[in-house]
Design a protein around this nucleic acid. Structure first.
Lengths: 134, 134
DNA sequence: ATTCTTGCAAATCATTTGCACTTTA
DNA sequence: TAAAGTGCAAATGATTTGCAAGAAT
């Protein structure tokens, strides 16, 4: 299957051994816009890969974050939710339905020199109610 | 003591009963720029108020957040850290020393209409290395 | 007196870890 | 086959909860 081969190659190119579990998690992230939590990823993938363990989901996500393949979106005191790294965009978190939207127009626009500070990342995070929940 | 009276009145005006614990935590937050975690607040206040319990620190912080007196700053997968609500400003999180700086110039600039979305809050969060840690 | 707050200990939830087993390159 | 990844279960850490006792109005 082409997709598998491609994800496979992509991970390998990032210096990551492309296990079935890792490829599955990577493709799961590719095919959703829901910014799923580790628990959600596990819940959805476990029926398909019955041997999958929570620890592997966490290990894999941590690895992806470390290698800049994915990054965590922190919402309040809740569990981390994950997004593939893509061109800078802001996030909108609906406090009613808990959906996290990508806001592609708004750019967190990384570093204007903050005089003395070395800026590695910038995140712009909105919170409010989405069109469905107003 | 004047300060006590003032914090007292401020909390009451926000509809909060001004217990000794709450006033202490409020003033602790007023007198620091360190964006302390609940654990840090407890560690620093416990020697002064030996009866203070962790639960009260958490209860109080949650109450402050609910009443918009304080808000949590989420850093990676770590514990929440707290800041008094003040005119919008960005945060800079040093990944080396874990200090969180207020960046008053940079404004998360709340809501330009996001077409259909009702924006209640906007946060701008930088990550990198601070002048001491570069 | 009634109502709200506190403190303690136990509970919960997300995440991590240790270790024996399995898979990948 | 060597090196790295996986799964399980137990451990950890942050935060919450239930409840009895204490303080404020």
């Amino acid at each position: 299957m082409q997709t598998i081969v491609r994800s496979d190659a992509y991970l390998r190119q990032k210096g990551i051994k492309a296990s079935f579990q890792r490829v599955s998690i990577y493709e799961y992230l590719q095919n959703t816009t829901a910014h799923p939590s580790a628990a959600k990823i596990f819940a959805d993938l476990h029926p398909i890969i019955p041997s999958l363990s929570r620890a592997t989901v966490y290990n894999t996500l941590n690895l992806f974050v470390e290698r800049k393949i994915a990054f965590p979106v922190q919402v309040d005191g809740a569990e981390a939710r994950f997004d593939l790294c893509e061109p800078h965009h802001a996030h909108f978190h609906c406090v009613v339905c808990q959906t996290i939207y990508d806001i592609p127009g708004e750019d967190a626009g990384v570093p204007e020199a903050l005089d003395g500070f070395e800026v590695l990342e910038a995140q712009l995070h909105y919170k409010g109610r989405c069109p469905q929940c107003r």
